[in-house]
Nucleic acid binder design. Structure first.
Lengths: 201, 201
DNA sequence: ACTCAAGAGTGACATTTGTCACATTGATAA
DNA sequence: TTATCAATGTGACAAATGTCACTCTTGAGT
């Protein structure tokens, strides 16, 4: 019997998946949670063979849970199950050595198939995800530029930004000018839109 | 046997729910789709007693599907099933006389229960939703202000906005000034953040 | 050793933005 | 029947923003 733990904050999907997986003759759902913290604790206690983790959950993301679990348990099989084909998420997942990264845009039988596959040692990345990642344009913004962009995305003025990042007023303006030129825009709002579209934030 | 159609664009939830509902002895899933257009056509053809509609779907939203269905069929029971407790969505749903509005933050047995309840003539609104709606602050922005806000949310300059909405440069600036004062902010980006937080867009 | 990018800065300039005061019109609520 | 509000507009002012040109330092790569 393959023991599985499910961490998914959307109740409807959580309860539906629990039921579906439990119907499989060789699967046993040993527990489920709707937030990351509870999930982490219970997985440590229950020691399932497989943990299915959503990324965006309250209290702790699935990626953080994965990271913590990998520290104390090298063998547990981890499946990230998320809506988002985001480069950042995927990179973090890979560096935490998850065994599979699936999108919720796949039907349940793909999930069932994946569970069997990773048990035989394979690593599965959703193909739709991989093509999205490959076609994603690379972030041309430097660390500082990104930092400053995050500041003005909150609506801060140049003055306020210069204070919170400890840079001169002029320097901040130069960075913003550079951001605008790299995004091919002429205003902060446009730049933010471009950054969001390309997942640079 | 109660015939049910399911329109839900997230494959994982779609397939999981189809399976779960079909397990109920008195339910029969007669079809499902992952976009609104297909859903509308098939519902018209298949004439199920109940249609479960997600809101955010490709091609046509669940709310639009509901509207079209109500025009040609007064009797079909409609259930809106969505992630979002948004006032706009809810108001639109009510005006299209849906029989239930559920959040995906409820477990599957609530959905099953709801189906039975609406068949006996009841109308069900998720309680979490209702309290969210009641506590939602009312949009203080006028139509014009909203229109102009949508323009500058795309990053347009005052000049560009004045051209696309056929208003003088000065008038647009007055509207923006008024938006800033109503949102209690001093910049467009801040105003946008406030509007997003309060669901005024 | 040389080049290049990132980081930090100054100064100057033209525009854009945000703010105010004020005015007219039409609809609507008290 | 007044107010009040939305919609529209002008003019003027101060501050913020975006752009350029230039400088300097440091670290990484060729």
């Amino acid at each position: 019997m393959i023991t599985i733990y499910l961490a998914e904050d959307q109740e409807m999907l959580n309860s539906a998946l629990s039921a579906i997986l439990d119907l499989e003759t060789d699967f046993k759902i040993v527990g489920s949670a709707t937030d990351g913290q509870t999930a982490l604790q219970q997985i440590i206690n229950l020691q399932p063979e497989i943990a299915i983790l959503d990324i965006e959950m309250p209290k702790m993301t699935g990626l953080e849970v994965a990271k913590q679990l990998r520290i104390i348990d090298q063998d547990i099989k981890l499946i990230i199950l998320t809506t988002f084909a985001r480069k950042n998420y995927f990179e973090s997942a890979v560096s935490n050595r998850v065994n599979a990264y699936l999108l919720k845009d796949s039907p349940t039988d793909v999930l069932v198939g994946t569970i069997h596959q990773i048990l035989s040692g394979k690593t599965i990345y959703d193909s739709a995800l991989v093509s999205t990642i490959l076609s994603a344009s690379n972030n041309p913004l430097t660390k500082q530029e990104l930092k400053i962009m995050k500041e003005f995305s909150q609506g801060k003025s140049t003055q306020e930004i210069s204070k919170t990042v400890f840079l001169s007023y002029g320097t901040v303006r130069n960075y913003i000018s550079s951001i605008l030129s790299k995004t091919g825009t002429h205003s902060r709002i446009e730049a933010l839109n471009v950054a969001k579209k390309n997942d640079w934030m």
